[in-house]
Amino acid sequence: MYAQMVKSDPTEGEPTPEEQAFQARIDAGEKIEPKEWMPEGYRKTLIRQIGQHAHSEIVGQLPEGNWITRAPTLERKQILLAKVQDEAGHGLYLYSAAETLGVSRDELTEKLLSGAMKYSSIFNYPTLTWADMGAVGWLVDGAAIMNQVPLQRTSYGPYSRAMIRICKEESFHQRQGFAIMMKMAQGTPEQKEMAQDALDRFWGPALMMFGPSDKDSVHSAQSMRWKIKMNTNDELRQKFVDETVPQAEFLGLTVPDANLAWNEARGHYDFSEPDWEEFFEVLKGNGPCNQERLEARQTAWDEGAWFRDGLSAYAEKRAARRAGQATAAE
């Protein structure tokens, strides 16, 4: 998942009988479906979270799209193109899931472009070499999966079903990314250098994908009660580190953290906190690619207006012609 710091709207005061019944359904593991009663806060929080995830899929096409035209073989070109296409598909499922909560894709898009809604901080980092196509799949999709797998059990039906489909494709992407890293890590000295450099650049930003430390995460409790968020940020970050470090060792690459060490007592790796100052700067819009990413989406939206309008106008004309024919036939 690509949702960070999603604001939740907790229920104020004593819960009403309706709210209590709603919470009881969630606690019993039932799924909430679109037409059913739900607290306004639940609906709004979900829209923010699903919307942010959808936007991340869409903006997330750009850093990888950056290398499609330079992919080194026909097979790699096809794999990367198919992967980025999957991301557009994920965006589509997620916008559709958000639509069931009463918000249109166009409304969400306008909010992305105005800056009122965010996408994951990770996509504001540049992809500088072909090894980044490996690192993005391995680390970025890998981090996303940590969050998405538990979300298959989230309380909102359409979101849960979207996640089930998305997870299948994401784990495939993660393996493809790892395969690229493997080729690079076992390749020429230049390729190996690119692989290490990609890990050096993406490690910290990948850890930031889980959001701030639990002690600074103000929105978690309510979302966790509603089963919109299934684990805390720190739990997932730890799980990611524990799974990824042995993979880096297998690749013969060095994780750029001098404090990284296996802690026998905890049964986990100890690791350094990522640079949270950098994280908040990126969220504020000051990351290396924030401007380019939003500009690219804004341009696609503005320059595509005539195209969308043309198709709508044709659909209206056709409907009018059919209505005319129907009237004439009567």
């Binding site: 869409i58 096409q61 750009l62 799209g65 499609i68 035209t69 070109k77 193109l81 198919a82 980025v84 296409q85 557009a88 598909g89 965006g91 589509l92 916008y95 894709r105 690219a296 341009t299 696609a300 939206w301 320059e303 595509g304 207006a305 195209f307 969308r308």
Partner: peptide
């Protein structure tokens, strides 16, 4: 494939990638 992520609608992004 140069259109990737830049098409006028999500459906077009997907369709252009398919044809590519």
């Amino acid at each position: 494939s140069e259109w990737c992520g830049k098409a006028p609608a999500l459906e077009e992004d997907i369709a252009l990638a398919n044809v590519a």
